[in-house]
């Protein structure tokens, strides 16, 4: 009986030491956990911005492609009319040459359609970004749980911006307000005599 109690105390002691070590290990990881937790929403926001930027670029390429497609349509119509007139005037050679131009336009039309379909990459990128943002949200929620459960918040408040990730995110954040538009650059250059 005494032996069993002794063994039990021994095991309880080992368990207490293990819990103590685990707590120390978590405390040591505290700055990284706090820092990562604080940075995840910003990282998610940058990912969403990325999606928005690709969408804007894609829409502009689409606008220009559609404009060229419409112009091609008008030119093809005009050419067809001219070919008819030339044929009526017995100018078969000229009509034939214009017919060749029409063929080239049709080939271009196919390329333009391929450009449009290739732009579907934006949709695929946006879907993956959405999934990544959802994962980041979940990871952040789990980290927050860890912080609350182990009461890490007060002990590591000062270490929020630590690490390379923090530095890179800071740079990304700054680029939102400091990124220069060409017109601004030209205005500044103009002040120094560049034309």
């Amino acid at each position: 009986m005494q032996n069993q109690a002794h063994k039990l105390y021994g095991e309880l002691g080992a368990l207490a030491r293990f819990v103590d070590q685990a707590m120390k290990a978590i405390s040591a990881a505290c700055p990284q956990i706090m820092s990562s937790s604080a940075q995840l929403p910003a990282a998610a926001s940058h990912l969403s911005d990325l999606s928005k930027m690709t969408e804007e670029g894609t829409l502009e390429v689409m606008r220009l492609t559609e404009m060229i497609q419409d112009n091609h349509g008008s030119i093809a119509k005009e050419l067809s009319g001219i070919v008819e007139v030339l044929r009526a005037m017995d100018c078969a050679t000229l009509a034939g040459r214009l017919g060749n131009v029409t063929s080239v336009l049709a080939q271009d039309g196919k390329c333009l359609t391929e450009i449009m379909t290739a732009l579907s990459f934006q949709d695929l990128v946006a879907q993956r970004v959405k999934k990544l943002v959802a994962i980041l949200d979940e990871v952040q929620a789990k980290l927050m749980e860890l912080i609350v459960v182990f009461g890490l918040q007060e002990s590591c408040e000062a270490t929020r911006d630590a690490g390379t990730a923090g530095y890179l995110l800071k740079q990304l954040e700054e680029s939102k307000t400091t990124a220069m538009k060409q017109k601004v650059a030209d205005d500044i250059l103009a002040q120094f005599g560049f034309k």
Binding site: T58, L59, M62, Q69, T113, T117, D123, A126
Partner: peptide, 18 residues
């Protein structure tokens, strides 16, 4: 039907070409 404006525009454009 698509939540992405780019995809709607692509499909619409191809349909127009067809």
């Amino acid at each position: 039907v698509d939540d992405m404006v780019t995809m709607r525009r692509i499909v619409k454009n191809i349909l127009k070409q067809l």
